[in-house]
Amino acid sequence: MTTRPAAPFPRATPEGLLWEPSERWVRGTAGDVTVVDSRHPVLVWEPRLPVPQYAFPRKEVRTDLLRPARRPRTGSHTGSTVFYDLHAAGDPRPNAAWTFPADDLSGYIAFAWFGPGGTGLDHWYEEDEEIFVHPRDPHKRVDAMPSSRHVRVEIGGTVVADTAHPVLLFETSLPTRYYLPREDVRLDLFAPADHSTRCPYKGTADAYWSWRGDGAVPPHILWSYPDPLPAVAVIKDRLAFYNEAVDLTVDGERLPRPVTPFSAGLRA
């Protein structure tokens, strides 16, 4: 039986890592092979990364599938010098796993979260639900709430959406996103885009549109979640714009365009 240290958490290590135990059952697979099957994971935050990652007790990892890395990616994780190549489901996956130098985490192994063709595992599950991109942060909230606010969206002075029936999505550390009824968006002004993204809190956004008109407008500015995760089911099939690249007016108040981690990628 694994003994969990007493609270408070998260705890800091001399290397600048933060960590805390999780009680979620976590599994990771490469092809048809279950590489991680853990009921005692820990969440680890590195100083330069805004999202957590999991690390797992060695006994809950298929360490027989790991080999010392041929070309360790020293410097890619805080203080880590021990890296492993994963030999499962076909070709070796370089630097798929590593250990952290902190004494608190000496018995744990972390894994990359990149899918097929990358270096990490293909699928991850918390309990029986697949999760994407990175573990969910227990200190972050995502709330989707129906509202009667009046929301108007403009691009270059053209009104592209106008509704009194939005769903407001509040996500810690990000601006409020406004998910609008499809019938209240001028979709005729946009072209379908071959683009998709994944979110650990909302699921897969595999419906995107780009602006047809003039002006320095970034591509993929409008998106939808056709099949969102149950926690935010109310946004299903609704449409949202990047606040960073459009002009939003809410209840008569023009909102400033925020600067977020997405801003750098939103260039026309």
Rank of each mutant, 00 (worst) to 15 (best):
T3C: 07
R11H: 11
P14W: 02
E15A: 12
L17C: 06
E20L: 15
W25R: 15
T34F: 06
D37N: 15
P41W: 03
V44H: 06
W45T: 02
L49I: 12
L49H: 10
P50Y: 03
P50S: 04
V51I: 11
A55D: 09
F56E: 04
P57I: 03
K59N: 12
E60D: 04
R67A: 12
A69M: 08
R70S: 12
P72N: 05
G79A: 02
T81E: 15
D85G: 08
L86M: 01
L86P: 04
D91V: 06
D91N: 08
P94C: 02
A96Y: 07
T99K: 12
F114A: 12
P116R: 14
G118M: 01
T119L: 10
G120Q: 07
L121I: 00
H123Y: 10
H123W: 08
E127D: 15
D128M: 07
E129G: 06
H139E: 12
P146F: 00
H150V: 00
R152Y: 03
I155T: 09
G156W: 08
V159G: 01
V160S: 06
V160L: 05
D162C: 00
P166L: 00
V167A: 11
Y179M: 06
V185T: 06
R186T: 09
D188A: 12
H195S: 02
Y201K: 08
K202W: 02
A205I: 07
R212W: 03
G213C: 02
G213S: 01
G213I: 00
P219S: 00
H220F: 00
P230F: 01
A240S: 15
F241H: 11
A245M: 09
D247I: 09
V250K: 09
L255V: 11
F262A: 14
